[in-house]
Design a protein around this nucleic acid. Structure first.
Lengths: 223, 223
DNA sequence: AGTGAGATTCAGGCTTGGCTAAACTTCGTC
DNA sequence: GACGAAGTTTAGCCAAGCCTGAATCTCACT
């Protein structure tokens, strides 16, 4: 009943989950899904019909889709695999953190439950992945802490850098090269107006790093 | 040029390699291939045609197939992945040795070269997997040492148990439960005639273990 | 209420890797 | 040297997932 979930179906579930998280409102549009997955709108539409048949989504034509409870657990299962793998690859094999995403993207679909459990145990049942994203628990609960985008902060703001998207290797390399990682505390020391860069100090370092628009927007912080 | 090798193609290459090893003669028959892969003869036949087109095998209609040089490297690459993974799963994650085969069977197709190398390094570049099978080197050389089937030995024969097929979990559990593993020295203490069991002592243990027909046939030894 | 942009669906196709049934080769035996 | 069994190939089909292009529908705005 749960085994006939192909990689494609898992990818759709994951994408819908992610779009539901971002987009406040309710339903995810078929087009948004298509774009996210790099697939034509027609393909996404037919796949959505199938997902509805499988009980993974609820589809209201012209209104979009939403994950069912079953669909949610499919999505969280894959997410757990993905994030555990990322953590495992970084900690046990020393894969650079800007490259783990692509590896995990492939392996997540082929990880057995047994291996998932052994990996989690080996890592001491971690709760976040190397990018600060929360890892769903074995019984598929997840807590997505509220965060702020760094580019919205004002001069003088201080807090903790908690999370950054794992999907842009460029950004990760930039941060990595400067020794900036999720978990670091920071302090905004300057900010250019009109979408200009933010200047911040991280951890106990004295160095001030410039963080350009897209980067500062991708960095999530808590105060 | 080498990237369009699907999982199915890799499986065929691996199966042909394995059948070439066993069957002394030359070509591997389509039927043998079909049986090995659990596929109909017609399916194997059409796949063989495709493999020929890809330059992976040389096919003489009605006579069988043989791996080309390119096909050989495809096979050895997959075999390296498989055996490194088996070793990794046993050593780093503690997966029981009778279960690693199935996991590796899936993951071998999705392991990047980068991960392959990191795993090999982490393990100290091992030369055999947990079942005693040799692991091809990074430049795809492999040495298959000559071995004897244990069921052909006579009473009094002594040597080293070096290798056992990884594909029968039952046998592996049986051996595992008795503490018998590749690398152990042994001595044949008794043997029933007409294909009856062999009785042998392993390692420094005093215990004599009965090894029935199929099992003794699957165990490979060197004297 | 009309309308156009954007979202959705339909129709028709492609590739992969399977399947069955039927036809064809090969080879050992008489 | 003919014949039948065993082995092999061809022909025709299927499902999954993707594609394009051409309809069609909805919604928000005027």
């Amino acid at each position: 009943m749960t085994l006939e979930v192909s990689s494609a179906v898992q990818d759709y579930a994951k994408a819908i989950y992610s779009l539901e998280q971002r987009g406040e409102g309710g339903a995810v549009s078929t087009n948004a899904l298509a774009e996210r997955l790099g697939v034509s709108a027609a393909s996404a539409s037919s796949m959505v019909k199938k997902l509805d048949g499988l009980g993974i989504v609820e589809h209201v034509p012209y209104r979009g889709v939403g994950l069912t409870e079953h669909g949610m657990s499919v999505a969280l299962e894959v997410l757990r695999h993905h994030r555990l793998l990322e953590r495992f690859l970084v900690e046990e094999l020393g894969v650079p953190w800007d490259r783990v995403h692509d590896e995990a993207e492939v392996l997540e679909h082929h990880l057995s439950e047994e291996l998932e459990e052994l990996i989690a145990a080996k890592l001491g049942h971690p709760t976040i992945d190397p990018h600060g994203d929360p890892i769903p628990t074995a019984d598929l609960k997840i807590v997505e802490p509220a965060t702020l985008a760094m580019d919205g902060l004002d001069i003088g703001a201080a807090g903790r850098f908690v999370r950054v998207s794992d999907s842009d290797p460029e950004m990760l390399r930039y941060l990595g090269a400067r020794g900036i990682a999720p978990g670091d505390t920071f302090e905004v020391v300057d900010k250019q107006p009109f979408g200009g860069p933010i200047f911040a100090r991280f951890g106990s370092s004295d160095e001030v790093h410039p963080l350009g628009g897209r980067l500062a927007a991708a960095m999530r912080v808590s105060l």
